[in-house]
Design a protein around this nucleic acid. Structure first.
Lengths: 242, 242
DNA sequence: CGGGGGTTTGAGTCCGTTCAAAATACGTGG
DNA sequence: CCACGTATTTTGAACGGACTCAAACCCCCG
C-alpha cells in the first residue's frame, strides 16, 4: 500500500498540459477562477484517485502520470476499461448528474492530478458554453473507444486483442524505432495487461509466450522488443478477415 | 428488401416524443428553426437510416419505431451495439466532427424519423447552450451503457447475458404482468438477439433451449413467457457471485 | 409446389478458463 | 548486502463453453 505523496503547487496559467485539456479555450478571467478552485496533488503509483461506488464531487485533470480506469465484477476480478494520460479528464459525468462513480481510478504511474469541484465546473461552463462542447467531444471519443472495445472483445481472439493493445501502447511508449523494428516500455503489470483485454493473467502469460515462440516479439520484464512491425500487423489481418 | 415509405408530415410543436428528446428545452423561436429545418420520413422495418462508413451530415431523431445500431466486423458478422427508441437521438457525433459514421442504423420496427442537418444543430446549440449539455448528458449515458457492455461481455456467460437482455427488454416490451410472471413480445429476430449479446445464432438457439428445459422461460416465435421473475434474477446472481 | 431465408440440431474442435503448483521478482528487515 | 516472506508471474493438466461446419427443419411467400 503506497503512502501519500503531498505538496500542492501548481498553476493553471503556466501548466503545460492544460493546452491538451478542455480548459485550453478558457480566457484569463475563467482561468483565474479555475486556478483558485483547483486542488492539486502529487500521487504515487498505486494510489486511488476515486473508487467505484463513491459519490463524485468533481472532475480530475491529469497533469502528469498515468491512470487506470477500472471496474470490478462480482467475482472481484477487475477489468481495465481505459488508460488516462496527461491532458485527460476524469469524472466529468459528475458535472451533469448526482450519480456515483461507476468506475474506479488508480494511479499506474505517479504524477500530479488536479481536482476541480462540480460547482466550479458548472460555473465555468455557464460562462463559456464552448467548454461544454469540449466535454461533449471527449465523451463521444470515449464512446467510440468503448464501442470499439465491445466489438473487439466479442470478435477477436485474446492474442489479436493483445497485439492490438501493443500497437496502441506503442504510440505512447515506444522508446526507439527504426525500419519497422521498435522497443517499448510497458506501463502495466502482466495482470493489468490481462485486465486491459479482458483475460486472465494465465492467459496473458501464455499469449506472451506464444508471441515469443513465433518470433513476433521478445519480452523481458516490462520491456518489449518487436523486430518487425509487419509481423504484428499481420497478426491482426489474419485474425480478422481470414 | 423493403420499399420506401414516403410522406412528410410532422410538426415539432405538436410532436409528443419531443418532450423526451434534447429539444425539450427549446423555446418557440428555436423550435421554429428546428421545425423548418427538419426533414421527416416514415420508414419501414429493415430500412437503413445510415450506414457504417458514410459521412454523417446531421442527426436523426426517432419519433416512433425502433432502430438497431449495428457494427460489422471483418468477417461480415454484425453485432448490435444498442437499440434506439422514440425520443433517442442518433449521430450527434457529427455535430462536432467531420468523421464518418462508425456504426450503421437500421429500422427494426417501422416508424417516423426526423433528420436535422449539422448546421442547424450547431446554430441551435449556439443560441441555446443548454442544448449542448443535453447532448453531453446523452453521451455520458451511452458511455455508461457501453462500458457496462464491455464488462458483461468479458465477465458473464452467454446465458447470463441473454437473461440480462430479457430483463432490459421486459421494461419496454412486457405485455402483461402479475405476481412475478410476465410475457413479452420480442422486437428482435433470433439473429439480432444473438447480435445483441455478441454470440452466434446457433448459441442463441441453444441458450433458449436450455432456458426452456430448465423451466425458466417458454419461447414461441417472438413471444416469451416467464412464469417466475425470481428464476430469471437467480440466473444472474448465481452466474455472477457464486 | 418449390424456393429461400431464418432457425434448430448435431458432432467435433479449439480457445480460454480453472485449479494447483512451481518459479521468479520484489521489498523489507535483519 | 543478504535472507526471508510475500506477491506476481509462469507452467501444467484438465475441463468446459462457445464456435465451426454441416445438415435438417420450418415457415412465409411467391
Amino acid at each position: 500500500m503506497p503512502r501519500k505523496a503531498a505538496a500542492d503547487q501548481s498553476n493553471c496559467f503556466t501548466c503545460q498540459t492544460r493546452k491538451r485539456t478542455e480548459w485550453c479555450i478558457l480566457d484569463d478571467e475563467d482561468l483565474t477562477i479555475l486556478d483558485r478552485a483547483k486542488k492539486s496533488r502529487e500521487h504515487l503509483p498505486g494510489e486511488l484517485i476515486f473508487n467505484e461506488g463513491e459519490a463524485c464531487a468533481g472532475i480530475y485533470c491529469i497533469e502528469s502520470g498515468l491512470i487506470g480506469v477500472r471496474r470490478f465484477d462480482a467475482h472481484g476480478n477487475s477489468i481495465l476499461l481505459r488508460l488516462a494520460y496527461p491532458g485527460d479528464t476524469l469524472g466529468y459525468r459528475s458535472v451533469l448528474t448526482e450519480e456515483k462513480h461507476r468506475v474506479g481510478a488508480e494511479m499506474l504511474q505517479g504524477g500530479r492530478v488536479c481536482f476541480v469541484d462540480r460547482g466550479t465546473v458548472r460555473a465555468l461552463i455557464g460562462r463559456t458554453p464552448a467548454l461544454g462542447l469540449r466535454f461533449l467531444r471527449r465523451a463521444t471519443r470515449e464512446l467510440d473507444a468503448a464501442e470499439e472495445k465491445v466489438l473487439s472483445g466479442t470478435t477477436m481472439s485474446i492474442r489479436a486483442r493483445f497485439v492490438h493493445l501493443l500497437l496502441v501502447l506503442k504510440e505512447r511508449f515506444a522508446t526507439s524505432m527504426e525500419d519497422g523494428a521498435f522497443a517499448l516500455e510497458l506501463p502495466l503489470s502482466r495482470q493489468d495487461l490481462a485486465a486491459m483485454i479482458g483475460a486472465r493473467p494465465e492467459s496473458m502469460s501464455r499469449t506472451i509466450k506464444s508471441l515469443e515462440d513465433d518470433g513476433i516479439a521478445r519480452f523481458s520484464g516490462r520491456t518489449v522488443h518487436v523486430p518487425r512491425l509487419d509481423a504484428l500487423l499481420d497478426e491482426i489481418e489474419l485474425g480478422e478477415d481470414q
